[in-house]
Design a binder for these strands. Sequence first.
DNA 1: CATGAATGAGATTTCATTCAT
DNA 2: AATGAATGAAATCTCATTCAT
Lengths: 227, 227, 227, 227
Amino acid sequence: MNRSSTSPAERLVPVTPRGQRTRLKVLQAAERVFGEKGYERASIADITREAEVALGTFYVYFPDKLSVFVEVVDELGARLRRLISEAVAGCESRLEVEREGLRTFFQFVGENRNLYRIVRQAEFVDEACYRRYYDRFARGYVSGLERAMDAGEVRRMDPEALAYCLMGLSDFLGMRWVLWQGEGGLEHVLDTAMDFIRHGMDAHPAEAGSGNKKGPRKPRAPRSKTR
Amino acid sequence: MNRSSTSPAERLVPVTPRGQRTRLKVLQAAERVFGEKGYERASIADITREAEVALGTFYVYFPDKLSVFVEVVDELGARLRRLISEAVAGCESRLEVEREGLRTFFQFVGENRNLYRIVRQAEFVDEACYRRYYDRFARGYVSGLERAMDAGEVRRMDPEALAYCLMGLSDFLGMRWVLWQGEGGLEHVLDTAMDFIRHGMDAHPAEAGSGNKKGPRKPRAPRSKTR
Amino acid sequence: MNRSSTSPAERLVPVTPRGQRTRLKVLQAAERVFGEKGYERASIADITREAEVALGTFYVYFPDKLSVFVEVVDELGARLRRLISEAVAGCESRLEVEREGLRTFFQFVGENRNLYRIVRQAEFVDEACYRRYYDRFARGYVSGLERAMDAGEVRRMDPEALAYCLMGLSDFLGMRWVLWQGEGGLEHVLDTAMDFIRHGMDAHPAEAGSGNKKGPRKPRAPRSKTR
Amino acid sequence: MNRSSTSPAERLVPVTPRGQRTRLKVLQAAERVFGEKGYERASIADITREAEVALGTFYVYFPDKLSVFVEVVDELGARLRRLISEAVAGCESRLEVEREGLRTFFQFVGENRNLYRIVRQAEFVDEACYRRYYDRFARGYVSGLERAMDAGEVRRMDPEALAYCLMGLSDFLGMRWVLWQGEGGLEHVLDTAMDFIRHGMDAHPAEAGSGNKKGPRKPRAPRSKTR
DNA sequence: CATGAATGAGATTTCATTCAT
DNA sequence: AATGAATGAAATCTCATTCAT
C-alpha cells in the first residue's frame, strides 16, 4: 500500500565481488528453478535453497520474485540471440543462415530445456517481457530477411509476417522433436523443415501458383506411404 | 471401503437438468476465469463468483481445480478442431484447406482470446493434457497431408514434421496479428502466409533447390523414405 | 499490486448466525489484543488465537489488519459517546453535564484500559480514523456548549476551542489518574478538575479579566520567578 | 568475560570528532524518520539512508533500535522544556507564564511536527520513557504552580491535577490547531484558551460556585461576541 | 571508524478443500 | 442440490542484527 518514499530498488547492484558472486548464484538458481517448476510453483525458498544462500539474501539483490523472472527471461533471450547470430555469421546464403540458425536453436533448446517453460510462462507473468522476447528476435530476423530480399535471394513478401512464420515453425519443431524427443532424429527434421522452407509445400513449384486448380498433374507414380 | 462400486470421485455427472445447467455454468465460468487470470491466479472462489453459485457448489461437480482445467482445455481443443474440420469440409484443394483452416483458426482466436493463455498454461499445469491438445491436432493434420501427398497435391516429406511446421506458423501468426493486433490487417498476413506455404521462400522456385547459387543439383533424385 | 478485478470485500457480512457470532468473537478479540500489544505488535495470529478460531477465519470477515483496527476504533468511540450521552441525559446544568461526562469517561477508561492505547495508535495507523474519533466527540461537545452559551450558562467563547480544551483536560487526567493509578483517588481529581473548569485558575474571579495588567492587586510581596 | 571493565554496550560514546559528527547525524536522522513513519515502520536502513551512512554504522553508536528511540524522545522533551523555560523566564505573572508557555509550545509543535508522532509512539514502545516525558514536564509545572499558589496568584488546588489539566489542554489545542491546521488562526485559539484558563467556564465567576442555580446573576453587561 | 553482505525468524495474506446444514 | 463457514499449510516479503573486511 504505502512502501511510499523508500526508493524502489534499495540496493540492487552489489559493489563487492563477493556480492556479485552471490547475485549471480541466485540468478542462475532462479533460471533452473523457474525452468523446472514454472513461475508460480517456484518459491523464493526453492531458489535460495538451490543457490545455497539464506532466504533473506534473495531480497538483498532482487526487489521481488517478478524481477528475477524478468531478468532471467531477458538474459536467456539475449544469450540465445547472441549464439545464433554468432553461428550464422559465416553463412554465405540465406538458406544456410536459416539452417544454421535452426540447428543452433535446436541445440540450445536441447541444452536449456527450460527455455520453453520459462519463456512461455512469461506470457502470464509479465506480458511486456514476453513480447519483448519475440519482438527482439523478430527485429533481427526482419532485417536479415530484408537484406536477403534486396539481394534477390528471397522472394519479396512481408518480412515481419515471414519472420513470425519461421519463428513459429522453429518453435513448434523444437518443442516436438527436441523437448518431447521424437524419434527420427533431429537432422531428419531439420531436413524436412529446410525442404519446406525452400520449396514451400507446392508439389510443382515450377508452375507455382497453379496452386489448387485443375492441371493434368503428372501422376508421378504411387510413391508409397510415409509411415 | 463401503460405498461399494462408486468410483472415487463420485457425483461428477449430474442427473437432473438443474444439475446439468449448474455444472455447465461452472465449466464456462472456469474457461473465462482461467483465460483472464491464468490457472494459478484463478481461484475456485473466482470461478464460483463468476458462475454465480456458492463456493461449495464447485465441489459438487468437480473433484478439484485441476479437473476443471483439464476439461476446459480438452473441450476447447475439441471445439476448435470441430470448427476447423467443418470449415474445410467443402474445400477442393489442399491449399484451399490450408487457407480456410488458417482463417478459421484466426477467427476463433479473435473470438476466444483466452485460447492461448489457457492452452499454454496447460504446459505447466498438466503436461499430458497439453501434449494431447497438440497431438490430436497433429493427428488430423497428418492424415490430411498424407492424403494430399498421395494425391500428388503436396510434395512428399515427413507429414508430421510438416504438420508441426504449419501449426507453429499458424500459432505465431495468430499470436502476433490476432492477439497483439498488428497493423496490416489479417487478410494481408493470411496472403503472406499462404504465399510462403505455397512457394516456400526460394526466390526462384522454378529452379528450386538452387537454393544458394548455381549447381544443377541432382534432378530431384529418389529422396528416400522419411523415417 | 494487482488484486485487480476481484471485488475488495468479498464477503464481509456473515449471513448465518454462526458467522455473525464468529465475526463478533474476532472483533472483540482484536480489541483486546490491540489494546494489549498495540497495532504493530499485535499479529493476526494473536487475534485469532484469542478468538479461538483458525488463522484463516480472520480473512473470512476482514479484508486485512487495518480494517479490523478501524472498525475497533470506530466502535469504541461510538460506545463511549453513547455511554456519555446517556449519562448526562438527565443533567440540569452544564456543569453537571461536565461532571457526569467526566465521571463516565473515567469509569469507561477504567473498564476499558485499552482505550488510550487503541485510539492513540490510530494516529499512525490511519489518521483519518483518528481524526474522526475526535471530530465526532468535538461535534457533540460543541453543540452542547453552544446551547449552554445561548442559555447564559457558559461564558461566550469559541466553542470548538473550548471543546478541545475540555477534551484534552479529560484525556490527560484519565491517563494520569485512571491509567497510571495515581494516589489521591478519582473523586478528588474530579473535584479539582471541576473546580478548575468552574472558576478557571484565577485566584480572584471577582476582578476577573484583571488578567496580568495593572490592577491594585494586593502587593503580596515580590512574587519571584516561576521556574 | 575478557574485555575487563567495559560496560555491555561498548562503543556508545565516540571519542574522535569525526565519530561525534557521525553519531549526531544518525540521531537526527532517526528523529526525522521516526517522526515521518513511526517507530515500527521506520527501519534502521531508513535511518542510515537518511543519515547517509552505511547500515552497519548504526550499530557502532547504538546498541539497538529502541535505544535511539528513547534517546530521541528524551532529547526532544529536554529541548522543549528548555525552550519553554527560557521563554517564560521574564514573565511577571503566572498568567503571562501560561500564555508564553503555550505560545512557545505551539511554535515548537509547528516547527517539529513529528513531536506528537514520536512522543505518542513512545507509549507502546517504551512506556517508561513515555511517562518520564510527561512526569518531567509535570514536575516543572507543579513547582511553578505551587509557587504561584503560595503567592496568591492562583487559587489553591491540587497542583499536579492542575498541571495535567493544563498539559492536556495544550496538547489537544496544539494537535487541533497546529497539527491539523484549523482556520481561525493560532492567536485566536490562544486567546480562547487563556480566557478559559483565566475565568474558568462559569458565566459569572464573581459569584463562583453558584454553578448552575438561579441567582440574580449580575447582568454584567453585553458580554460581547468572541468571534 | 566505517562498510555492506548475509541471515532467518516472523508477519501478512491467499486459497484449495472439507463439512455441517 | 446447494450453501457458506471454517481450516491451516504455504508463500512472499521485511528487517533487526551480526560479522568479516
